[in-house]
Amino acid sequence: MEQVQPVPRNHSRLVIKLLLLVAGAFVFAFALVPLYNVLCEVTGFNGKTSAGFAAGGLKAGLAQAPASRVDTGRLIRVEFTGTVMPGLPWEMRPLKVSLDVHPGELQQISYLVRNTADRPITGQAVPSVTPGQAAQHFEKIECFCFDQQTLAPGEAQEMPLAFIVSPEVDRDITHITLSYAFFSIEGQRQTLSATAEAR
């Protein structure tokens, strides 16, 4: 077999290109975090609810719900539930377990939340809507989950919620469940994202 001396090659250019690929993949992992949030908002994936109507408050919300938009042809049962996460000595329950609503109608209900501890505590509620396909059509006009809530020792509060189920919601959907998880934010750094992304 014919044999030759190997030609010395400089490997550094290829190595640098491959290292760039590695760095790019690492950055991509972190880029997926904001990308994923955008995706969830667009598709309602994971029960993330529409944030588009949150900013204007109740008045702007009423403008979103003109009578002509109401679809009286069908009723959707909206069920309410809530969980207090470990580490938060609160109790919560919705004042009504469910509501039958026409799509497009503005509705209001409240959750009763009570602090059972003997010290003031701040909590943050995180909403989730099931099924995911309905989440993007579930428009919260006003919600206690937009802000952190502080309760005095033993205090009980009715926390209000106003919402519209958009008439664009799929006709197959007859039931929607809105669930809140109330978290303690004591001992956690209160980042901007805590309130901004909870919407």
Binding site: V33, N37, N46, A181, I185, T191, A194, A196, E197
Partner: peptide, 15 residues
């Protein structure tokens, strides 16, 4: 103290 996967801070476990 980050909240990438911690729902209490607006993160998402499914991520």
């Amino acid at each position: 103290g980050t909240h990438f996967f911690d729902a209490a801070g607006g993160g998402d476990p499914i991520l």
